[in-house]
Amino acid sequence: MAETLATQPGAPHGAEAHRAAAAAGGKRRDFLKLVTAGFAVVGTGAIAWPFIHSMNPSRDVLALSTTEVDLSPIQVGQAVTVVWRGKPVFVRRRTEQEIAAARAVSLSELRDPQTDEQRVIRPEWLVMIGVCTHLGCVPLGQKPTDPKGEYGGWFCPCHGSHYDTSGRIRRGPAPSNLAVPPYAFTSDTQIRIG
């Protein structure tokens, strides 16, 4: 741009002086271009963000994020499935054998090493999000008639992941253990998830 200005025919001043002015103008022009481009990028981002963020969970969706569960009707060896944030949550009252089996496993055997103690608040109650960590199917194993996989816990029918009695991944494509949601005992027979 500066060069075309410098070589324009009929320039009134001496060529040398003109070229010097043009060079200085070039620097000013570069600065202006950079500032304009910078503002354009920031402006585009600022305009794009509301659109992008509008697709994130809205306030009413976020507001639905606690669920209370009454544990009193659940007998030893039984399990219930409740809904939290639209996902199934497995609540299982484990037997002594299941707890013992989960605690007998050495960490070196696990793909996602976690002790059973880290996954429960009270050993009897195992609370997990019932969503396979591979691609989001609901594993089988809640009903007495369901296949429970080779480790006596849960089995995902979609792509064949096996979970143990602590909900830890033991075999199959899933990368990690069934997630434990944040929860707390509000009394001896009630928990609040979320």
Binding site: I52, N56, P57, S58, V61, S65, R85, G86, K87
Partner: peptide, 10 residues
């Protein structure tokens, strides 16, 4: 989560 607009397909 962004794709879903929530914590599950809904």
């Amino acid at each position: 989560t962004w794709l879903w607009g929530g914590f599950s397909v809904d």
